[in-house]
Amino acid sequence: MKAPIFPLGSIVLPGGRIPLQLFEPRYIDMLARCLKDDQGFVISLLRDGAETGRVASFCEIGTYVRIIDFQQLDNGLLGITVEGEAKVAIAQSWQQSDGLNLGEVALLPEEACENVPAAFHELPSVLRALFQHPVIDGLGMRVDYGDARDVSWRLTELLPLDMKEKQSLLEMQDPLARLERLQGLLEALDEG
Rank of each mutant, 00 (worst) to 15 (best):
Asp147His: 08
Asp137Arg: 14
Gly53Trp: 00
Val55Asp: 15
Leu8Gly: 00
Asp29Val: 05
Lys166Tyr: 04
Leu45Pro: 01
Gln21Glu: 13
Glu157Ala: 09
Glu24Cys: 03
Ile61Leu: 07
Leu176Arg: 14
Leu13Val: 10
Leu102Ala: 01
Asp144Glu: 14
Val143Pro: 01
Asp144Phe: 05
Leu102Lys: 02
Ala32Tyr: 09
Ala129Met: 10
Leu182Lys: 05
Phe70Leu: 11
Ser10Trp: 00
Asn115Met: 05
Leu22Ala: 11
Thr156Asn: 09
Leu73Gln: 06
Phe6Thr: 00
Gly192Pro: 00
Glu122Cys: 05
Leu169Pro: 01
Leu123Met: 09
Arg142Phe: 07
Asp29Arg: 13
Gly9His: 02
Gly76Asn: 10
Ile28Pro: 11
Asp147Lys: 01
Gly192Cys: 07
Glu110Arg: 15
Leu170Lys: 01
Leu182Cys: 06
Gly99Gln: 12
Gly138Pro: 08
Glu51Phe: 04
Leu22Asp: 11
Leu100Asn: 02
Asp150Thr: 03
Phe6Trp: 00
Ser97Met: 07
Leu186Asp: 09
Ala32Pro: 04
Lys87Phe: 02
Leu169Tyr: 02
Gln96Cys: 10
Leu170Met: 13
Arg54Cys: 02
Ile43Gly: 00
Ala56His: 03
Glu104Met: 11
Val65Glu: 03
Leu107Val: 10
Met172Val: 05
Gly138Ile: 08
Ala118Ser: 14
Asn115Gln: 06
Leu123Asp: 04
Ile80Glu: 00
Lys2Glu: 15
Val82Cys: 05
Val116Asp: 03
Leu170Asp: 02
Leu123Trp: 06
Gln132Ala: 08
Gly16Cys: 12
Ile11Thr: 09
Leu186His: 10
Ser10Gln: 05
Phe6Ser: 02
Ile28Met: 14
Pro14Glu: 05
Ala50Tyr: 02
Gln183Thr: 09
Ala148Leu: 01
Gly62Arg: 01
Leu189Met: 15
Leu161Tyr: 04
Leu108Ser: 13
Ser125Tyr: 05
Gly192Val: 06
Glu114Pro: 01
Gln96Ser: 10
Arg17Thr: 13
Asp137Tyr: 12
Gly76Ser: 13
Tyr145Lys: 09
Leu179Asn: 03
Val105Ile: 15
Glu60Ser: 13
Asp37Glu: 15
Asp98Glu: 12
Asp150Gly: 01
Gln21Ala: 14
Gly40Ser: 05
Glu191Arg: 11
Phe120Glu: 14
Cys59Glu: 15
Ile136Phe: 13
Gly62Pro: 01
Val116Lys: 02
Asp48Gly: 07
Tyr145Thr: 08
Leu35Phe: 06
Gly40Phe: 02
Ser57Gly: 11
Cys34Ile: 05
Leu46Met: 04
Glu104Pro: 06
Leu158Glu: 07
Ser93Trp: 07
Ala188Pro: 05
Gln95Val: 13
Leu13Pro: 00
Phe131Pro: 00
Cys59Leu: 11
